[in-house]
């Protein structure tokens, strides 16, 4: 302590100036990166608020001269996806019907799996955990054909429950990993104490583990929601007209143009499709960071 102060009193001014300079440099750098990442969003947003006329004549980065929400209205309920012209609205609804149960179920099963693997070890539990981890690294493409067969046999082909099933199965590896890694930090003695208190498997899970799990639940929900909402490959492979998720609809809107390409509608549709994931991040983002870095649970 004394060393530092004596050094400071030697050249206090130079020190302070250098600190301020460094700070500003850092801020400038961060600002630059932020700008770089925000630029596409800016272009999307401004383009979606312009009329087609203005897009044709004006510059890409210019602000709209006249703000119009026509493109948004059309994207929501009037744009054509192939021969159907109902906008993204029905597909947006499909995505919600798909993502909410799929996120809920995969998180719930992941929590129970993680709880078992962390605290109710059985012969071969490590092997099973390794296999589940392996599941995280299997590329989507590999499972397409076998999954199509399975869905066919189950009679779920082309339905939303079928898609939910696919996402739950595919998500289990990750959700199990998240919860297992979180639950191993909870002392084993807690389970022992609860056992002596007379609590059983589900009672301990429900009364002791779940209340501790908010940070990891948030992480898992954000992760799973982003994955499932943004998924295109499973959506396009295992759905049929009427059950397609919003990502597939977006693709169809952008690709099925008649005559002039309506950039403003495409942009509006893209923003609408991305809105829910952005919303989830904004609402739960701070828990996400906290959950990812959460260490042991002090008892």
């Amino acid at each position: 302590m004394t060393d530092i102060t004596s050094e400071n009193t030697g050249r206090p001014l130079a020190h302070a100036v250098r600190n301020i300079l460094l700070r500003w440099l850092l801020l400038a750098l961060l600002g630059l990166f932020a700008l770089y990442y925000l630029m596409p969003l800016f272009v999307m947003l401004t383009t979606s608020l312009k009329s087609l006329e203005e897009i044709r004549t004006g510059s890409l980065v210019a602000l709209p001269r006249e703000v119009t929400f026509d493109a948004w209205a059309k994207a929501w309920s009037g744009a054509c996806t192939g021969i159907q012209c109902e906008g993204v609205r029905p597909f947006f609804w499909n995505s919600i019907l798909l993502a909410v149960p799929a996120v809920f179920l995969s998180t719930l099963f992941g929590a129970v799996n993680g709880y078992v693997i962390a605290h109710w070890r059985f012969r071969g539990s490590n092997l099973i955990f390794s296999l589940m981890l392996f599941g995280c690294f299997i590329p989507f493409q590999v499972v397409l054909l076998p999954m199509a067969r399975v869905l066919g046999i189950m009679g779920l082909a082309g339905t939303i429950p079928g898609l939910i099933f696919v996402h739950v199965v595919y998500g289990l590896g990750f959700t199990t990993l998240f919860f297992r890694n979180y639950y191993v930090t909870i002392p084993q003695e807690l389970v022992k104490a609860a056992k002596i208190d007379g609590a059983g498997f589900f009672r301990i899970f429900w009364s002791i583990f779940l209340p501790l799990s908010l940070p990891i639940v948030v992480v898992t929900v954000i992760w799973q929601f982003t994955q499932i909402w943004n998924d295109f490959l499973f959506g396009v492979s295992f759905s049929q007209s009427g059950t397609q998720p919003v990502t597939v609809a977006l693709n169809n809107i952008v690709n099925s143009t008649t005559g002039v390409k309506e950039y403003n509608v495409d942009m509006a549709a893209a923003i609408i499709a991305a809105l829910p994931t952005m919303l989830v991040y904004v609402i739960a983002g701070k828990y996400f960071i906290r959950g990812l870095t959460a260490g042991s649970v002090k008892g």
Binding site: E189, I208, K298, G299
Partner: peptide, 10 residues
Amino acid sequence: FQSYALYPTM
């Protein structure tokens, strides 16, 4: 128990 094993959320 050594770590007391109190239920943290209760």
